[in-house]
Simulated assay, not measured.
Amino acid sequence: MDRIGAASDRHARAMDAQYALQRHIYDITRKYYLLGRDRLIRDLAVPAGGSVLEIGVGTGRNLALVARHYPQARLFGLDISAEMLKSAQRNIAHAGAHSRTLLERADAARFDPQALFGEPGFDRVYISYSLSMIPQWEAALAQALSVVEPGGSLHIVDFGQQERLSGWFRAALQGWLGRFHVTPREPLFAVAHGLAATYGVDLSCRALYRGYAWSVTIRR
């Protein structure tokens, strides 16, 4: 089955090229500025035996931490980069969670959870610093919410607009992020509000660290 599709193949190849080498040092370099990830994981509150999907699993750093926090959870992850999935498989194995984890290569904006993982949906879904790298990020956000089971929740953390930080810092950060094809999504809160209204679900939006990062939680 084609899990990527021709429309996403260019993005997949770009991500593989970018991370073929970077994946080896990604977690060391990113831990200083991908803020709010550990808070998101603590807030998941996964029920015993519950299922967790990470969209944009990257190196598997986050999912390995989820495995440690929630030893009874069933874990799933997808990423468009085959290179990143190599690191994810290794990190999940190091966390001792290989037997309860499934990782697959897929497009965040268009995937079938049943075909991919044999699951109709998930108790918890989260996206950590990936929407800012997904070209069709609004479609990915809608897709993520669509695979949350009733009673479950979707959790997002990503770069904000640095609205309470100095202008020079904001300009410098956004210039730096642009070098890595990262674009903070200014309409994120508005798009989340629209989805919450469509689905009739609870929404919480927060600016973290003076707007350095934005957090979204949607509960079904």
Rank of each mutant, 00 (worst) to 15 (best):
M1Y: 00
M1V: 05
I4K: 00
G5P: 01
A6N: 07
A6H: 09
D9R: 10
R10G: 10
H11N: 09
A12N: 05
R13E: 10
A14P: 01
M15H: 08
M15P: 01
Y19T: 03
Q22C: 01
R23F: 00
I25W: 11
Y26V: 09
T29P: 02
T29K: 01
L35G: 04
R37I: 09
R37E: 13
R39H: 06
L40Q: 06
L40T: 09
I41Y: 15
I41K: 12
L44C: 08
A45I: 01
V46A: 11
P47N: 03
P47Q: 01
G49Q: 08
G49V: 04
G50H: 03
V52S: 04
L53V: 06
G56T: 07
T59G: 04
T59L: 03
G60T: 02
G60Y: 03
N62I: 12
L63K: 12
L63T: 11
V66G: 12
R68D: 12
R68M: 09
Y70F: 15
P71M: 14
P71I: 14
R74F: 03
L75N: 09
L75I: 06
F76R: 13
F76I: 04
F76M: 09
G77V: 02
D79W: 04
A82E: 15
M84D: 04
L85T: 03
L85N: 02
S87E: 15
A88W: 01
N91T: 04
A93D: 05
H94R: 13
H94L: 10
G96Q: 04
A97R: 06
H98D: 07
H98N: 01
R100V: 07
R100W: 06
T101H: 00
E104N: 07
A108C: 00
R110W: 00
R110T: 02
P113Q: 10
Q114A: 14
G121L: 06
D123H: 15
V125Q: 10
V125Y: 06
Y129L: 07
Y129M: 08
L131W: 12
M133F: 00
M133K: 03
W137N: 08
A139T: 09
L141Y: 13
L141I: 11
A142I: 00
Q143T: 11
Q143G: 10
A144I: 13
L154H: 10
H155W: 06
I156R: 08
I156L: 13
G160P: 02
E163Q: 15
L165M: 15
S166L: 05
S166R: 14
S166K: 11
G167C: 05
G167W: 05
R170Q: 06
R170N: 00
A171Q: 13
A172C: 08
Q174F: 10
R179G: 11
F180H: 14
F180W: 13
V182G: 11
V182S: 14
P184S: 13
R185F: 00
E186L: 10
L188V: 10
L188I: 07
L188G: 05
F189C: 02
A190C: 08
V191H: 14
G194F: 01
A196I: 02
A196M: 02
Y199R: 14
Y199T: 01
G200T: 07
G200R: 08
L203M: 07
S204Y: 07
L208P: 00
L208C: 05
G211W: 12
G211H: 12
G211I: 08
S215I: 03
S215A: 14
T217E: 13
R219A: 13
R220W: 09
